[in-house]
């Protein structure tokens, strides 16, 4: 699948990740630096979320309703991003909403990756009926627009956080499974895997210690492709009023609420929407950069 020539290069970069990362920093384009900075900020919000909010995000103040955000006429420094129809502080809601969206997306991405990578290994290793069954499941998953399945399932199962998490975890696993299976099948035939096998290593040892690190690059790229679509999955469902619902909040839920006030208070929709956009944008820029660095063969 890949040319023989770039295999040693890839295993070298993976075996010394820190040296590789540092050598990358010097030549990093400005957009990539900005993306990493923004994603770091989002991670800080995800970890510390509720400690950072200036007000409790659900605190109602009917005397300060629909205040505009900072540069607009009539704003106050007590609410730098303004307030919504119930006088709740938009900055606090944004922080908590971003925390919810990010935490769910990270969890969903990781669960999807684990399921997909495991099944990909199983399909490649067991072959025959296992392979057929797993690939049939992959076809099935790819045949159903998962967003629509989620819509139906959530409607009939009701507002359950566990169901929502399961749906997010199952979103996108087939991509990892397909890539892992292909990569494992081709990696198995390469010198290093055959050599370790000849030394008497068990399949599990070969896969975990030798094959997985060698195919980590393409899987990492798949992660950066999957992450933006997972956050869009969460925000779209919450936007439609499924997924995260009041009294909880997420970026999509805020945008859905703000949509009703486009004429009188456009910022209620535009502020959370911008945060979603910047998150997916940063992840895509970072992903493109990683892909170009990890797999030079893609570029020419």
């Amino acid at each position: 699948m890949t040319a023989e020539a770039n295999i040693p290069a890839r295993s070298r970069t993976i075996s010394r990740p820190f040296v590789w990362m540092l050598s990358g920093l010097r030549r990093m384009p400005l957009l990539v630096t900005l993306s990493i900075a923004f994603l770091t900020l989002m991670l800080v919000v995800t970890v510390f979320g509720r400690f950072l909010q200036p007000y409790a995000f659900e605190q109602i103040d009917l005397l300060a309703r629909m205040k505009p955000p900072a540069p607009l006429e009539g704003f106050t420094w007590t609410h730098p991003l303004g307030t919504d129809k119930l006088g709740r502080d938009l900055l606090s809601r944004l922080i908590v909403g971003a925390q919810t969206s990010m935490a769910l997306t990270l969890l969903g991405t990781v669960v999807g990756a684990i399921i997909g990578i495991t099944l990909g290994f199983v399909a490649a290793h067991k072959g025959r009926w296992w392979d057929e069954a797993i690939m049939a499941a992959v076809d099935f998953q790819a045949a159903m627009p998962w967003f629509i399945v989620a819509l139906a399932v959530l409607a009939f199962m009701g507002n359950s956080m566990i169901v929502f998490l399961m749906l997010m975890g199952l979103y996108g696993w087939e991509g990892y499974a397909r890539i892992t299976r292909g990569l494992v099948l081709s990696a198995r035939e390469q010198g290093y895997a055959l050599a370790v096998h000849g030394l008497g290593a068990t399949p599990r040892w070969i896969y975990l210690r030798h094959v997985l690190p060698n195919i980590a690059g393409p899987l990492l790229v798949q992660l950066t492709i999957n992450f933006p679509s997972t956050i869009l999955f969460e925000t779209s469902l919450s936007f439609l009023g499924l997924g995260i619902r009041p009294p909880m909040t997420s970026l999509g839920q805020m945008l859905g609420e703000g949509r009703d006030y486009l004429i009188s208070a456009w910022w209620l929709a535009v502020v959370p929407g911008t945060v979603i956009f910047l998150t997916t944008l940063s992840m895509s820029i970072l992903g493109d950069w990683l892909r170009a660095r990890l797999d030079p063969s893609l570029e020419n």
């Binding site: 933006p228 936007f239 945008l255 949509r259 979603i276 944008l281």
Partner: peptide, 12 residues
Amino acid sequence: GFSMPNFFLGIL
């Protein structure tokens, strides 16, 4: 273009 969530693009 593909980072833009389409519900947000619609609203804009």
